[in-house]
């Protein structure tokens, strides 16, 4: 059992537990903080997968910018309370059934992954996925998606401004 394996197991457990905490916390601020913890562990997973640039982006964009936006909106609206409404009388069996079927689906998926993707090897000379390589790729073969993405961001900016404007 290598040290990387131990790190991976610890990170995976923390990540899944943080996601469960996101679902089960009553306070929306706690849910957002659990999501930040999840993003941080996933960033370390990216580092282990030899993608340091994306790990930094994950921390700065996801855990930084997006989650600050979430916390800002939660506190602006005063919507901290996540009231877990009691299930309707006729639907009481629905939650355990949904959890059971979801677990069954996950087990099936895990079985397929283990049988299909078990004996994977990697090329020895791995290229570094630094900002320069990604930038060359973005402005070379992926120029059109890059420009479409910039239009998407522009539309999102205009949409956010228009939607939040007072009448």
């Amino acid at each position: 059992m290598t040290s990387e394996l131990i790190v991976f197991i610890v990170l995976a457990i923390i990540s899944v537990l943080a996601a469960v905490g996101l679902l089960s916390s009553r306070n929306a601020v706690y849910a957002a903080l659990f999501l930040i913890l999840n993003f941080a562990t996933v960033a370390v997973l990216y580092l282990m997968l030899n993608a340091p640039f994306l790990a930094i982006i994950q921390i700065s964009v996801y855990a930084g910018a997006i989650m600050v936006l979430f916390l800002f909106v939660i506190m602006l609206l005063g919507a901290e309370r996540l009231n877990q409404a009691a299930p309707q009388p006729g639907l009481r069996w629905q939650r355990p059934l949904a959890i059971g079927l979801g677990a069954l689906l996950l087990i099936q998926a895990a079985y397929v992954f283990i049988t299909r993707f078990n004996s994977t090897t990697v090329a020895p000379n791995l290229i570094q996925a630094g900002p320069m390589e990604i930038g060359l790729k973005l402005f070379g073969p992926y120029l059109l998606p890059f420009e479409v993405t910039s239009i998407l961001l522009l539309v999102a900016i205009i949409g956010a401004v228009v939607l939040t404007r007072e009448k």
Binding site: A51, L54, Q58, I134, L152, G159
Partner: peptide, 26 residues
């Protein structure tokens, strides 16, 4: 691992997630 396309797609998903969060919260 010799092609960098997977990383590039992930970068695009970051952008889409940011736009989605901004518009959704608005």
């Amino acid at each position: 691992p010799t092609s960098i396309s997977g990383i590039t797609f992930a970068a695009f998903i970051f952008v889409v997630a940011a736009a989605e969060a901004a518009v959704g919260l608005a």
